[in-house]
């Protein structure tokens, strides 16, 4: 078989795709957080950042389509590998397989992945498509039409007021709660994924196994703290 065919069809090939796309998505998750944390700076900063991201439609769509392709490959590999895993044990043990030495995160990657996928769809409808209905606010709420918010004064007049949009988006506690749960599951997913990808790509051996496992856990907790701080800060009115 040709190498590309082997990469797409063999067990290890698909794990490599899983690990490589996962690594790219981790970089995106880190970059996205760095962008979002600008909410804690004066509001002009994040509005200028959002304006910069939208300044070139070509670049923006190239990045978006690239991300869709990466997510698509990641999800395709996950479904394909999981289907094979299920088929490999048609009759399970009477009490199932027990988690010897296995972390919870490592055993439920597909399940956490499913919730994350649902969250990503919602998140895109909420903040990218900016559907007012995704905000789940009553129609009388002042922040209901949060997609219309624009900066009206100063040098940034006419810019989209992302700072206000972000706060409006977290006015509904159920939405914020869903964000927190999804971020929690994402970070659990990453606490395993960020080390397993090194195994799949063939570079996690000896002392580096322990180091990478520890590093992945620390990074996962840091990412959770960073992402969770935003809805919590909005709820506590630290950001307004």
């Amino acid at each position: 078989m040709k190498p590309l065919q082997l990469l797409l069809q063999s067990s290890i090939g698909k794990k490599v795709i899983m690990g490589a796309t996962g690594a790219a998505l981790v970089l995106f998750v880190i970059g996205h957080l760095v962008g979002n944390l600008q909410i804690f700076l004066p509001k002009e900063k994040i509005n200028a950042y959002a304006h910069l991201l939208h300044s070139s439609a070509g670049v923006l769509w190239a990045v978006r389509l690239g991300l869709v392709a990466i997510v698509g490959l990641h999800v395709w590999a996950a479904i394909s590998l999981t289907a094979q895993n299920k088929a490999a044990r048609p009759v399970n043990y009477v009490e199932g397989t027990r988690p010897y030495a296995a972390s919870w995160a490592s055993r439920y990657m597909f399940h956490t992945g499913l919730v994350i996928a649902a969250f990503v769809v919602y998140h895109l409808l909420h903040y990218t498509a900016q559907l007012p209905v995704a905000n789940l606010l009553p129609s009388t709420h002042p922040a209901k039409d949060f997609n219309q918010l624009l900066v009206t004064t100063g040098a940034q007049s006419g810019y989209r007021d992302v700072h206000a949009m972000l706060i409006a988006g977290f006015q509904q506690p159920i939405v914020s709660l869903f964000y927190l749960i999804a971020i929690g599951l994402l970070c659990l997913h990453l606490s395993h994924g960020m080390t397993a990808m090194f195994q799949s790509l063939g570079v996690q051996e000896g002392v580096w196994r322990t180091r990478l496992e520890k590093g992945a856990q620390v990074l996962a907790i840091a990412l959770f703290a960073g992402y969770a701080s935003i809805p919590i800060a909005v709820y506590l009115r630290i950001v307004q």
Partner: peptide, 23 residues
């Protein structure tokens, strides 16, 4: 290449790095 191809053909599942095997 051939041992992995045979492993796949026999219908074994894939590694998710849980570590239970080594344990």
């Amino acid at each position: 290449l051939s041992m992995v191809a045979k492993m796949d053909e026999e219908g074994f599942g894939n590694c998710t790095v849980t570590g239970s095997c080594a344990a």
